[in-house]
Structures are given as structure tokens and as C-alpha cells.
């Protein structure tokens, strides 16, 4: 049970933006899908630091990323 970042794909796709993927401290975790024009999170690798939330919400005021609780798969 821990927090991971979750991208609202519909909201994210409205902008031509991959800023959050540039500021994630984890490599190959917050990725950008060129076809769907949206960022997505590899939940198994996300450590839940919420730096992407700072970038998306505080810096860009777009509010596309939230922190959500995930539960381990049975």
C-alpha cells in the first residue's frame, strides 16, 4: 500500500507538453506516449515523490497528475 502518481490522460492530451517526464528522478518511469500525446506512469517503478505533481500543478497550473493509493496485487 503506497502512493503512486496517476496521470489523467484525457486532461493531459489537451496540452502539447512533456515537462513532467523531464523532471522525474526515476528513469523509464514517467513516460510520454507520442501517439496518444499523453504522459503515463509505470506504477511498479514510481516511488511516489510527487515531483511531477509539483511540475504539473504548481509550475504549470494544469492539474493533470494526482497521487493515488495503490494496493499490492494478490
Amino acid at each position: 500500500m503506497y502512493y503512486v502518481a496517476k496521470v489523467n490522460a484525457d486532461m493531459c492530451a489537451e496540452y502539447k507538453c512533456n515537462t513532467c517526464t523531464l523532471y522525474c528522478p526515476e528513469a523509464n518511469t514517467l513516460m510520454f506516449d507520442k501517439v496518444g500525446n499523453t504522459s503515463w506512469v509505470d506504477e511498479d517503478r514510481c516511488k511516489g515523490c510527487a515531483l511531477c505533481v509539483y511540475v504539473c500543478t504548481d509550475m504549470l497550473s494544469r492539474n493533470c497528475i494526482t497521487m493515488e493509493m495503490v494496493h499490492g496485487k494478490e
Binding site: 512533456n18 517526464t21 523531464l22 523532471y23 522525474c24 528522478p25 526515476e26 528513469a27 523509464n28 514517467l30 513516460m31 510520454f32 507520442k34 504522459s39 517503478r45 516511488k47 511516489g48 515523490c49 510527487a50 515531483l51
Partner: peptide
């Protein structure tokens, strides 16, 4: 390159550094 990080497979792979570590970001 750095301008399109998140769109290619990066050299650094799952590392054991702390959550939100700025050093890990700079190394990336």
C-alpha cells in the same frame, strides 16, 4: 537526448536511491 527523456529507453535503470532524490535526477 535530454529534451525527449521519457520517449526513449534510458541508460539508467531502476536505481535504489531515495524517493524524490535530486541527485538521481541529475545523474539521469
Amino acid at each position: 537526448g535530454p529534451g525527449n527523456m521519457g520517449q526513449f529507453k534510458e541508460l539508467m535503470e531502476e536505481h535504489p536511491m531515495c524517493s524524490g532524490c535530486w541527485m538521481a535526477y541529475y545523474i539521469r
